[in-house]
Amino acid sequence: MTNIIKTEDSSKTLLGFWVYLMTDCVLFASLFATYAVLQNNTYGGPSGKQIFDLPNIFIETILLLTSSFTTGLVMLAVKKRNKNTVLLWLAITWVLGALFLSLEISEFRSMVLAGNSWRSSAFLSSFFTLVGTHGLHILAGLLWAGVLAFQLATKGFTENVTRRLHLFSLFWHFLDIIWIFIFTIVYLRGTL
């Protein structure tokens, strides 16, 4: 009897998490809408064209994309219930994500040190908030991955751990999808 409830749990939780991801899309859409409206309000300061370092952003994009791929490899290993492979690919995903984040932080840092901070103009406020919110999500994902790795290592493939690995992979893929749009609309379009 209890078993039936647990499998039901999986499909319920998957749907619930998916609905949450949809709400997160609306959150990002609000920030995108604001960015779209305010991106030209540079208040005499620099526009994106002048401060975006496109090659660096391209590297960040490839890093994140690769980590999305390695997350897929995590899920394949979960399917085979191969604990060590899962931990390996999870660690690689984590490292790629952390590299992405550190590049982003150094990008922000150099902008601020050059005098272009979030306080300088509406454009910069909306830029830092949109990209920064994505970065915060990445940070949350890294924390989550760490906890999951620990749980997997200590408890093995329990129902909860397996389900949560699946949810994490969804979350990480979703973050890469959001990044596609940040990359395109903020950075690529911004340098035109």
Partner: peptide, 10 residues
């Protein structure tokens, strides 16, 4: 920040 302020482009 300056999303909705009356200066700096908000």
């Amino acid at each position: 920040m300056h999303f909705f302020t009356s200066d700096s482009g908000g």
